[in-house]
Write a protein that binds this DNA or RNA. Structure first.
Length: 150
DNA sequence: GCCAACGTTGGC
DNA sequence: GCCAACGTTGGC
């Protein structure tokens, strides 16, 4: 079992949206590092921190769970889709997604600002300047340290 | 294979 | 809205 952190913009799809639908295909990821993690490493039951980016108070707002292994993201080969990638060959999928299941909302938002102050978290890619990875691994120690802040 | 130009992310 | 960081593209 592994731990992850996944970013989402609350204006587009936030933790409340996930709570409403219960389970959501995490499509639209068009970054190879993130793709590789979803395709190769994520397992059903892995735990996920749900992170709100690009908003008033960026931070961790909830816990979710990986509900499927990686499978091809067919929005990449759908010309109608927002995240259509004309260079993705339908017969040789370039992009992958997983399904993410709602777990719970944290009692409060653990802000990026607060996360930055924790020495236990200084190695997280998230707190590094200019981190644009939308999916990243979290160690067991980091997971515990973050939950302890709640 | 180098690297400048460009587009996107995301904190502030 | 600004802009730094960084990934991708494409000319050479």
């Amino acid at each position: 079992m592994q731990y992850w952190l996944m970013k989402s913009e609350p204006d587009v799809f936030g933790i409340d949206d996930l709570q409403k639908v219960g389970i959501e295909p995490w499509d639209g990821v068009r970054n190879y590092q993130a793709r590789n993690m979803m395709r190769d490493q994520m397992q059903v039951g892995d735990q996920v921190f749900f992170y709100h980016s690009n908003c008033d108070v960026p931070g961790i707002v909830g816990v979710a769970e990986i509900a499927t292994q990686g499978y091809p993201d067919d929005t990449a080969v759908n010309p109608e889709a927002k995240y259509f990638d004309p260079k993705s060959d339908p017969n040789k999928p370039r992009w992958y997604r997983v399904d993410v299941k709602f777990g719970r909302k944290l009692k409060r938002t653990i802000s990026l600002r607060e996360l930055r102050e924790q020495t236990a978290l200084e190695n997280m890619p998230l707190v590094r300047k200019g981190c644009r990875l939308s999916v990243m691994p979290v160690t067991a120690d980091e997971w515990q340290a973050i939950l302890a802040l709640e």
